[in-house]
Design a protein around this nucleic acid. Structure first.
Lengths: 191, 191
DNA sequence: GTATAATATAGGACAAATCATATATCAAGG
DNA sequence: CCTTGATATATGATTTGTCCTATATTATAC
């Protein structure tokens, strides 16, 4: 379960609560390659505590609800290290829009072109969100070792969205140039 | 559930058994954007028959086990059409290797470079598999309308793997040029 | 005053996907 | 004779992930 290992990696930086993990860590930087549901984070923390990978301590707060702050244990560090050394399989790619594209011959061009525009807009929105991820700029002197890798995962996100948009634009062109023949049964006069 | 809709799209071409769907349709062409487990296909067929989207008929065979051949119904065609008109959300991207990359500062360069090479090999293998997908070549005259869209989904797969490989190569270069400092605590003399 | 948002955790219900295994027949290879 | 592979379907168990809802407090906005 990679969610557990992502959490181990984060708690290896500093102890955090489930709320911190969700709002400060996952939603800010990790979500674009491993989004995490709030409910699942808490349940996974329970499981990890059961495994002895992390230890939770209740932090009583007067002005706000109490927090359970989790710290990585030695066993947790060992598990993280073991996992980081394990080669990972390429995940399955499941994209409903591509299924639509595959069967789009059954749709009028106008509808599939609308779908494509909507996909472009959604991809562009993600690209814009990436701009808000705190990326250390290269002119601020040499990057810390961590920052090299953080930046690479960000670059992946950017490259991925750009590739998708390029392909979507290409698809629009392809569909337009292989446009649906008009209502006549004959081939169009211009070839 | 998009698996059901992928099946509807396939059965809209011609009636098929669960076995056909798995081995002729999914594993051959659709798997790279919607892989399907055999057990899940059969269970989904049961559900779809329950919804009235498809009708199964037992085909008795003497030399081989009997087949249940499914045909799309009018309700199924309507459901397929409805779904094809529905805009699709961008799916979550979950990639364990990127989690490793994010935390790779805790690994020696040699290990992460090995992981990268293994990822490149796996991506390359997928690229090679795509070569076996029957892609209608553009010099065989004008493509049938279906083939335009089939080809586009194939192009997506190719573009995706190529992008991944490019990024992996870039990552190797980046890691090498920002190499781990040697065991001395001082900064290296060349800089 | 009252609704909303932020902080903080948790459980129920469900959907989707994976993995292993079982069954049954025939053909082909050793 | 025995194993393996192709054909063909099916079930059990489990893992993962999602969605909704509940609880409780404080601060802020209207």
């Amino acid at each position: 379960m990679s969610l557990a290992h992502a959490i181990l990696g984060l708690l290896n930086y500093q102890p955090m609560s489930g709320y911190d993990l969700k709002h400060l860590a996952f939603d800010r930087t990790i979500a674009h390659f491993w989004p995490a549901d709030q409910a699942q984070i808490y349940r996974t923390l329970d499981k990890m505590a059961g495994e002895g990978w992390i230890a939770g301590e209740l932090e009583v707060q007067s002005d706000r609800p109490n927090r359970r702050v989790f710290t990585i244990t030695e066993a947790g560090r060992a598990e993280l290290d073991r996992w980081l050394h394990t080669p990972q399989a390429i995940p399955a790619h499941r994209e409903a829009f591509l299924v639509q594209m595959f069967f789009a011959a059954q749709l009028p061009d106008a509808v599939i072109l609308e779908h494509i525009d909507q996909q472009i807009a959604a991809r562009q929105a993600r690209l814009d969100q990436f701009g808000q991820i705190i990326a250390p700029s290269p002119d601020e002197g040499p990057l810390r070792r961590e920052q090299v890798f953080w930046r690479l995962t960000l670059e992946f996100g950017l490259a991925h969205e750009r590739m998708c948009i390029e392909w979507l634009e290409l698809s629009k062109q392809t569909i337009r140039s292989a446009a649906q023949p008009p209502d006549t049964k004959d081939a169009p006069h211009e070839g």
